[in-house]
Write a protein that binds this DNA or RNA. Structure first.
Lengths: 143, 143
DNA sequence: TAATCAAGTGCAATGGTGTTGCATTTTATC
DNA sequence: GATAAAATGCAACACCATTGCACTTGATTA
């Protein structure tokens, strides 16, 4: 189990310290994107700043991506299978369920946006963030 | 000039106080979305909280919409001509130029996202936020 | 016109999140 | 084992959103 985590960290050239292993483990366990505060609560009494910097390292090393939406705060998630590798994929729309508060990834539409804006209007696009709020299929049935 | 502003406010059933007229005027003058702090700076020494509540009122009364992206903070803009009326339109993608920091509205792609997620996957969508970061056509030539 | 009430405003203060500086601890290297 | 580099933990700060409360303004009614 831990060996697997260490393996992943080393694959991304991240020194496998205890804190980093803990944070990575949580990102792997979680079935949703996690905020700094959520991770902080899970790993209490681990230091907030250290987790913050760990997440920064993860984003920099492209093992995880960050989605920033104001009223939920920034959240972090591991890149999915489809984006493991050379590309840092944080462009799939993120769906925030207003019922269960879960943040999940949905299909990627960014290529449509990218294509339109770059070819037709000469925008130079660095990052596309799509955030969708509503009720997820899970919760639709629960209500 | 002021009569026009008063007219607009009354159209949206907002009592035309001096502060509200000032804020609305700035939103109209600005060719981009404005943050609370930007409006605060323009209207100095007007009270931040009052402007904040004025903007809340504007959003509630659907004369303006809010876009929230973390690292720029929340920004506000008047609904465009195409969305004046019954519908509160805040779903066009917002483009943040990393050079001039200007936030502008771009074409609307949300219908694509909405259609796909609702018909194919049973999501109930309340709000779509698309934020794009990069360099706008204006600044591309300047560099 | 004066009294009354609701709405709007301004000041003070709080809470949350992101962020930095610095001293200490841990880890890697020689 | 000594030294250097990286990671960590604590304290503190900055910024923004937000609330509480007292005061002012403006509208309504007696």
């Amino acid at each position: 189990m831990n060996y697997q985590i260490i393996e992943i960290l080393e694959k991304y050239q991240i020194k496998p310290t205890p804190m980093r292993m803990l944070v990575l483990e949580q990102l792997r366990i979680a079935r949703k994107l996690l905020s700094l505060s959520e991770i902080e609560a899970i790993l209490y009494p681990a230091d907030r700043v250290t987790i913050y910097r760990t997440l920064q390292t993860f984003v920099r090393k492209r093992i995880a991506h960050m989605v920033d939406t104001l009223h939920t705060g920034a959240v972090y998630g591991l890149c999915t299978d489809s984006c493991i590798g050379a590309e840092h994929c944080d462009e799939h729309p993120h769906f925030i369920c207003e019922y269960c508060k879960t943040i999940t990834c949905t299909n990627d539409f960014s290529y449509i946006i990218r294509k339109n804006l770059t070819t037709a209007q000469n925008y130079e696009i660095h990052k596309i963030e799509v955030t969708i709020k509503g009720i997820c299929p899970n919760c639709t049935s629960k209500r």
